[in-house]
């Protein structure tokens, strides 16, 4: 097991194989850890909203801090119009954060280290934002590809670049999160393997490194959830307030 750092990303079914019209929808360890993250989120929020205290308990303080944090993030990046999307951004941030953090526990599985998971989110956001843009602005939404104040000569090139960058949004969004999580966990595993293979005498150096990396990975876990959420806010802002 120590030999292959990619082994931790292996998906396997738990329980019976479920196949609906030829598509494998079995409950896997990935699904299990998604469920665990979900249950943890619900548990925290349940604890946080159980009592209506004027002076909040720890769980209540935590949920209220989360609320204020995300509310501030949305109002800072996307403005007032993004208010209806607050629950979505909140759920997105909390879900990714919890998946990342649960993944930091030893022997657990990191849901967000799978490209399909992040890509599902990214494609959903991409399609949603595009539809929203067309609903809000009609065909004027295409102005997003034509920045104002650009010389006419450069306009075709700029527009092509803008279109490419727009279309690559879901890929950049999903790969950023997925690659960060995968790289971090692979590195942790590699250094963990070094500790074993170098033994009692030489293993201290990679162990120190491993501890430091764990701290870094916790930071990355939070940061990537934040980045994912804030980029979603920025895309929403593009669709809601056409600045170009």
């Amino acid at each position: 097991m120590a030999a292959n750092p990619m082994h931790q990303f292996k998906v396997h079914t738990i329980g019976p194989e479920i196949e609906i019209s030829g598509v494998n929808l079995s409950f896997t360890n990935a699904s299990l850890f998604m469920t665990i993250s979900g249950v943890l989120i619900i548990a925290l929020l349940l604890l946080g909203t159980r009592e209506k205290k004027l002076i909040p308990s720890k769980a209540q303080l935590l949920s209220e801090m989360l609320y204020n944090f995300i509310a501030k993030m949305i109002s800072d990046t996307a403005g007032k119009k993004a208010k209806p999307f607050f629950p979505f951004i909140f759920s997105l941030f909390v879900f990714i954060l919890f998946c990342n953090m649960v993944g930091m526990l030893p022997y657990s599985f990191t849901v967000t280290s799978h490209i399909i998971v992040t890509l599902t989110f990214a494609i959903f956001i991409f399609i949603g934002v595009t539809i929203l843009g067309f609903i809000m602005h009609g065909f004027k939404y295409l102005k997003i590809f034509v920045p104002s104040g650009v010389p006419l000569v450069l306009l075709p090139i700029i527009s092509i670049i803008e279109i490419i960058s727009y279309l690559s949004r879901p890929i950049s969004l999903s790969v950023r999160l997925f690659a960060n999580m995968m790289a971090g966990h692979t590195m942790l595993k590699v250094f963990g393997g070094f500790v074993i293979s170098l033994g009692l005498i030489g293993g201290w150096l990679p162990l120190t490194f491993s501890v430091a990396l764990t701290g870094l990975e916790i930071l990355v876990a939070f940061l990537q959830a934040y980045v994912f959420a804030i980029l979603t806010c920025i895309y929403l802002n593009d669709a809601l307030n056409l600045h170009h």
């Binding site: 998906v11 479920i18 598509v23 494998n24 929808l25 079995s26 409950f27 896997t28 990935a30 699904s31 998604m34 469920t35 979900g38 759920s91 879900f95 849901v111 799978h114 399909i116 998971v117 599902t120 989110f121």
Partner: peptide
């Protein structure tokens, strides 16, 4: 192999 499963469960749970 498990892409559909992962996407399905993700959508369901999320």
């Amino acid at each position: 192999k498990y892409w559909a499963s992962q996407a399905f469960w993700l959508i369901l749970i999320f």
